Every structure is written in C-alpha cells, then in structure tokens.
Simulated scan of single mutants.
Amino acid sequence: MMRVEVHADRCIGSGVCALVAPDVFDQRDDDGVVVLLAEHPADEHHESAYEAATRCPAAVIDIHEAG
C-alpha cells in the first residue's frame, strides 16, 4: 500500500503536484502551499503521485511503499 507524506513547511507553492496529481494533491488558496488529499491514494493514482514527487522543485513529497 502506498502512503504519501508531504512536508508543507518546506513547500514553495509551485503547484506542480496539484497539476500532475489533482486527485492526490491540492494547494491552499491563500499561499499555494501543498494540501494532501489522499494519504493512501487509489491504485490508479500511484503513477501520478510518483511523478508529482519526482517533479516537485522543493522535494517535499515522500512516497512510502508497504509490502
């Protein structure tokens, strides 16, 4: 099972995560900081979650896989 973790305190508000994986991430309206929508995303969102983590310019997204 995939678990997504974000470090919002380091987020620079680029919005890449919300664009790449809108079912997993959003942004706060006031400052653009990442909001995690799905800590355990459905299987069909795993690929986009990985892409968002890879493309995040501030590297604030961690993906954990449990056996």
Results as ranks from 00 to 15, higher is better:
M1D: 00
M2I: 03
V4A: 03
V4H: 07
V4E: 10
V6F: 04
D9R: 09
R10P: 04
R10A: 05
C11T: 00
I12V: 15
G13Q: 00
G13V: 01
V16G: 10
V16H: 06
C17R: 13
C17H: 05
A18Q: 08
A18V: 14
V20D: 15
V20M: 13
A21K: 07
P22F: 04
P22M: 07
D23F: 04
D23T: 08
F25I: 11
F25A: 15
R28C: 07
R28I: 10
D31R: 03
V34D: 03
L36E: 15
L37W: 15
A38L: 10
A38F: 06
E39I: 12
H40E: 08
P41E: 03
E44L: 03
H45R: 05
H46I: 06
H46S: 06
E47V: 01
S48I: 02
S48A: 08
A49C: 09
A49V: 12
Y50Q: 12
A53N: 06
T54P: 00
T54M: 10
R55L: 10
R55Q: 08
A59E: 15
V60E: 14
D62N: 13
D62W: 05
H64N: 10
H64T: 11
E65I: 00
E65C: 09
E65V: 05
G67A: 12
